[in-house]
Design a protein around this nucleic acid. Structure first.
Length: 374
RNA sequence: GGAGGGGUAGCGAAGUGGCUAAACGCGGCUGACUGUAAAUCAGCUCCCAACGGGUUCGGCAGUUCGAAUCUGCCCCCCUCCA
């Protein structure tokens, strides 16, 4: 009895318009998922998320395990109740990304990962089974298998061994998983090696997960390599399950992922750069802290429908950033998230109308962003 | 009028004979940021034709091989007592 139902509604080339039904929530794909690592999309609350039309959001197993602890969230009645978020499903990342981002503070063994807590230095151990059990207690709608997000570049032997271990971990997590109101996704690794990507995808598909992720992209490789990684994986994933590329938020990355047939993606980029004063707009990237905006009383982006663009001027936002007022972080985060969500809403409509490639080209041509894609 | 304290780069503030174009903080300017140790991090911030040179530490005049640092005079500011 699966709690997640994916329906492929329409294809335009490889781009997919779909629908996910899960635990009473229904959402359309492709979708962009804001990241709320510590049970909060930094600076936004549920009302802001509703306003920008966010649905699925992320939480993080490693971070919530350390603080407040999965038991607290369980006692609260689960993550939805805990953070008062009911606008859509919640997906938890497994801790696999921390294997990458906290590389200096961890050790990998066959059994699992030993972390040296970034909070207090204590030694903590997480097995693939632990990751699943923690996610079950957190009560997310979609859980992820514990994987190793492989650094780039890594040599073939390292990647092969890592992929095989990630596959064993995936199986162990699957066997340990008990909640039937929680979906579980496997994560395809394999770095830039086509055969390892294919192998990893095929082995995971045999295990029959509820969805499949592509991990280990946008970890320092060039764009060409990044996009090829998608090509090495997507042909081997089933049409009737959602595909999720983890950790992409640049405009070109998203548009290309959709074109190739990815349904879901998340990224800290829009919220992080917002807190740093950077905005994605239909006129390209701008930094609100710059002096030229000090007396600019126009909106951030005249083509945007977010609350920030509807109600505030660049001059005011410039002031908030110079004064280090938290409202600036919130207003810019709202804008950047809405910008990406709207971009993907446009993509869904374009797929429906069989003009996705035109849509993509139009955006890539019109928006004055650079190689990085924002 | 008397006693004491002080004037350092845009601001605040170290430094009290050479290692000082002068710590540090703020402010300002650049850049970075992709499954969040990130409201963070990195660089620049006296002037110039600049891997070198030129002017600086209230002002002027000295002492010294060498002064933001010592001496004299002057200007300004603060506190206390009359």
């Amino acid at each position: 009895m699966k709690n997640l139902k994916y329906t492929l509604i329409h294809k335009d080339g490889n781009a997919r318009l779909g629908q996910i039904e899960i635990n009473g929530y229904t959402l359309e794909t492709p979708c962009f998922m804001p990241v709320g690592t510590q049970a909060t999309v930094k600076f936004l609350d549920y009302r802001d998320l509703k306003d920008i039309n966010a649905s699925l959001i992320l939480g993080n197993t490693y971070h919530l395990w350390l603080r407040p602890g999965e038991d607290v969230i369980d006692k609260a009645g689960g993550i939805h109740e805990f953070m008062h978020y009911h606008n859509g499903p919640i997906l938890t990342d497994s801790g696999g990304f921390q294997v990458f981002s906290l590389a200096k503070r961890r050790n990998i063994s066959e059994e699992g990962v030993t972390f040296k807590s970034h909070l207090d230095g204590s030694t903590l151990f997480m097995s693939p089974e632990d990751s699943i059990h923690i996610q079950e207690k957190i009560g997310s709608d979609i859980a992820m298998s514990l994987d190793e997000c492989i650094p780039y570049p890594s040599d073939y032997k390292y990647v092969k061994d890592s992929v095989e271990r990630t596959l064993r971990w995936a199986k162990r997590g699957l066997d340990a998983h008990t909640r039937d109101d929680q979906a579980l996704f496997g994560i395809v690794q394999g770095s830039k090696y086509p055969d390892l990507r294919k192998y990893c995808a095929e082995e995971l598909v045999k295990m029959d997960f509820d969805g499949y992720s592509i991990g280990g992209t946008s970890v320092g490789e060039d764009k060409e390599t990044h996009y090829k990684m998608l090509d090495y994986v997507l042909p081997y994933l089933p049409e009737d399950k959602p595909r999720y590329e983890m950790g992409i938020g640049a405009i070109n990355d998203i548009l290309i992922a959709i074109e190739k047939g990815v349904d879901m993606f998340d990224c800290v980029l829009p919220t992080r750069i917002a807190r740093h004063g950077t905005l994605m707009t239909s006129n390209g990237r701008i930094n609100i802290k710059k002096q030229i905006y000090k007396e600019d009383f126009s909106p951030l982006d005249e083509n945007c429908d977010c609350e920030t663009c509807k109600n505030y001027t660049k001059a005011y936002l410039n002031h908030l950033f110079r004064a280090n007022e938290g409202l600036g972080n919130r207003l810019l985060s709202i804008h950047n998230l809405r910008f990406l969500i709207k971009l993907v809403e446009g993509a869904r409509l374009a797929i429906k109308e069989n003009r996705y490639l035109e849509y993509k080209e139009e955006i890539l041509k019109k928006y004055n962003f650079d190689q990085r894609g924002f």
